[in-house]
Design a protein around this nucleic acid. Structure first.
Length: 462
DNA sequence: TTTTGAGTTGTTCGA
DNA sequence: GTCGAACAACTCAAA
């Protein structure tokens, strides 16, 4: 066995705060940097996320002095072959706790072991790895608030002090055999304007937030008309910054806004913990009693689903959100909740259809946060919401987009309407403006319908 | 074992 | 317009 190792990047496309580098440098004198284009992951990603990934890989390759080896195939095959090609004793990764990643890594581990090589997991995409936060009796939390408290008490390591030069990188071209390298794919046609990719862009965004919007985050974070959120989700998704780095930067700052932002990071870790414990909840109701919820189907339901997808429901805040999703491959969190509530409670469609649509389009689409965010809204998730919590799209619009600026930005048909009147176009003196649809459902009636359907779930519980 | 307090994100209605 | 009450019952976590 040679004195070499492989550092296999997955969703940790950075060189700073990278514990795998320390592990690799400890294990071998030289390492090969590897990324695997895995069709099983790329196919369901959507062009926005794929393109962002490719751009991120170019940035990572540059940071590594052009020494990132990119191959294509099933990791159980190609990682094994790459390791064999340099006779590496160890392959270093950050642990993946997702349903697919867990299975993939077990397969890779086994394939490597057959040749006497080891897969070593160091760190994870989380400040506290899933499964580590435990109740006093050793069980896992199913409710957020106690999880958050225990998570903070558990604590996390300081950021690892690493950089590209922490590891002596092997030149991929100097390999003797193994799978051929493939170029990083070209950008795909993407309609949406994507954020800048790469670790440097992540840090720029983070510091702009720390020095700017963070001070009013607690107050304005629910306002989609303001640039009040961190926009860090995509960088966390691809691991271009580690949450531990962010928590360390937040630590010396004390304010209600900082506390609120830390709580948002805790949500991300909570949902990862839940998905790890219940991998089935990526597809099925976390609360199986919701299997009894009567769902809409048929041609009317399909028509309504299509209207929701394209931002043509006639409810301005919903349509603005769905169009922001197309234009930016991103949607403000408050609006995600509003459009989700509309799909589930006004259209009576299954949450997973909305979740799947989001995963297709979102550049920051993260399975754990996305599926459980949707299940939370649907009521089938953790801490089931009270049955009577049905978002009113008009009230939500008036409350969180009080001047209507957000709606007008994304719904040009309504640009001629001033102020908050834009949230009720059907009540305008001249009627609904040309080109904009009337409401596809009667919210008041559908709310009552939703309450009735949720009764069915409740009665199944008894 | 029992008890207690609490649970991200809301809406409607009536005074 | 503002404000408080009502809207279920259940599960969770810890004392």
């Amino acid at each position: 066995m040679g004195d070499t190792a492989v550092v296999w990047f997955r969703r940790d496309l950075r060189v700073r705060d990278q514990p795998t580098f320390l592990a690799a440098a400890d294990a071998a004198s030289r390492s090969l940097a590897l990324f695997v284009l895995d069709p099983a992951l790329l196919q369901p990603s959507g062009s926005a996320r794929r393109t962002f990934l490719y751009r991120s890989l170019r940035a990572l390759d540059e940071a590594l002095g052009g020494r990132l080896l990119v191959v294509r195939g099933d990791p159980a095959d190609v990682v094994t072959l790459v390791a064999a090609g340099i006779d590496a004793a160890t392959v270093h990764v950050a642990a993946d706790f997702g349903p697919y990643g867990t299975r993939r890594d077990e397969a890779v581990e086994k394939a490597l072991a057959d040749a006497g090589r080891r897969l070593l997991r160091t760190g994870s995409p989380y400040a506290v790895a899933p499964g580590r936060v435990r109740k006093a009796d050793g069980g896992s939390f199913g409710v957020f608030t106690p999880f958050r408290r225990a998570w903070a008490e558990h604590g996390w390591r300081a950021p690892a002090e690493t950089g590209a030069s922490t590891v002596r990188w092997l030149d991929p071209d100097a390999r003797d055999g193994g799978p051929g390298s493939v170029p990083i794919p070209d950008d795909e046609p993407v309609d949406a304007a994507l954020p800048d990719a790469g670790e440097d862009a992540a840090h720029r965004q983070w510091w702009a937030f720390l020095d700017g919007a963070l001070s009013t985050y607690g107050e304005h974070r629910n306002r989609p008309d303001k640039p009040a959120t961190s926009r860090m989700s995509v960088y966390l998704k691809f691991g271009e910054i580690h949450p531990r780095t962010m928590l360390a930067d937040l630590a010396p700052r004390r304010s209600a806004s900082v506390e609120t932002y830390r709580t948002e990071l805790a949500w991300r870790e909570f949902y990862a913990d839940i998905l790890w414990r219940r991998p089935d909840s990526a597809r099925a109701n976390y609360d199986r009693a919701f299997d009894a919820l009567p769902l809409a189907s048929g041609s009317v339901a399909e028509k309504r689903f299509a209207a929701w997808c394209e931002g043509g429901t006639g409810f301005p805040i919903v349509d603005a959100g769905m169009r922001q999703l197309r234009e930016q491959a991103w949607m403000h969190n408050r609006v995600r909740m509003i459009v989700a509530s509309f799909l589930v409670k006004d259209l009576h469609l299954p949450w997973w259809r909305g979740a799947r649509h989001f995963m297709q389009l979102l550049v920051d689409g993260d399975l754990a946060s996305n599926q459980h965010g949707w299940q939370w809204t649907a009521g089938s998730g953790t801490d089931a919401s009270p049955y009577f919590r049905v978002f009113n799209p008009v009230t939500q619009g008036e409350k969180f987009d009080p001047d209507g600026d957000y709606v007008r930005r994304f719904v040009p048909e309504l640009r001629g309407v001033a102020g908050k009147a834009v949230h009720r176009p059907w009540a305008l003196p001249g009627g609904v403006p040309d080109g904009y649809p009337g409401p596809i459902v009667d919210h008041k009636a559908e709310r009552l319908e939703a309450l009735e359907r949720y009764e069915r779930v409740k009665s199944m519980r008894d």
